[in-house]
Amino acid sequence: MGILTRSEILRLIEERALVIEPFDPSQVGPASIDLHLGREFRIFRPAREIFHVTDEADHRLVTELVEVEDYFLLLPGQAVLGITEERITLPDDICGWIQGRSRFARVGLMVHVTANFMQPGMVRTRQVLEMNNAGPIPLAIHPGTAICQIILEECTGRARYEGRFQGQEHP
C-alpha cells in the first residue's frame, strides 16, 4: 500500500476505475493530479449573530454563492470556499489528499484549511476548497488555474463514501 505514481494513476483512468471529468493527461505529475479552480465561490456574510458549530451546522446559512468570470479578489485574512472544475470518482480502495501548490503558498494562499481528505468510493464529486489568504497582499484568484493537486493512496480494505457531500456540485 502506498501513494500512486503517474503510471498507476493513468492505468486506473484508462480502466475507468478512477474517473476525473474533465481530464487531460498533462494534469498528472510524478505522483499527483492537478485540479483547476471553478467559477463559484461561497463568501461569508457579515456576522450578525453567533454561529453554533454542531452536527447540524450548515455553512450555507452564513454564506452566499457568487460566480465570477475573471477573478475573485481574496483579501488578507479573508476566507472563502471555492470548488474544483473537476468531478472525481474514486474506487473503493483508493483515498486522496488535497494539497496546495507551493507557487501559491509562497504568496500566502492556503488552498485547504482543514478538510483535505477524499474518502474512498466517492462518486462524481467536485472538491470544495477552504481557501484563505494568509499573506499581507490582496490576491486575485482566477478560475481555470491549476490551484491544487491530489495525491492518491491505496487503502487497506475497501470502503464506500455515502456522506452528505457525495456528488456535490457547489461550494
Rank of each mutant, 00 (worst) to 15 (best):
R45Y: 05
M110V: 13
N133Y: 10
I20P: 12
S26R: 08
I43S: 03
E153A: 12
L37T: 01
V80H: 06
S26E: 10
T125Y: 03
A105E: 15
C95P: 02
H59F: 10
E154C: 03
F104G: 07
V28H: 06
I94D: 05
I150G: 00
L65V: 06
R16M: 01
T125P: 02
S7E: 12
L18M: 05
L152P: 00
S102Y: 09
E169A: 15
L18R: 03
V19A: 04
G144L: 14
A115I: 14
E64S: 08
T84D: 09
L37D: 04
Q99H: 13
S32D: 12
H36I: 00
S32H: 11
Q127K: 07
T54C: 05
R103G: 14
E85H: 07
F117R: 03
R164S: 14
P136N: 05
E154F: 03
P30D: 13
E40N: 12
L129M: 15
T145P: 02
D93I: 00
Q149I: 07
H170T: 14
V107N: 00
Y71W: 08
Q27F: 15
E69F: 09
T5D: 05
M118Y: 10
Q78E: 08
I43F: 01
L4D: 00
F41V: 05
W97G: 02
E15V: 01
S7V: 05
H36K: 15
E40H: 08
L12G: 00
P136S: 10
L90D: 07
R16S: 14
A31H: 12
D93E: 14
R124K: 11
I43L: 08
E85C: 06
E154W: 12
L129A: 04
M131N: 01
A57M: 06
H170S: 15
R39V: 09
G135M: 04
A115D: 09
G121P: 01
S102K: 07
L75K: 15
R164M: 09
P76S: 04
T125D: 02
T5L: 11
P46G: 01
H36A: 09
T63Q: 13
Q99T: 12
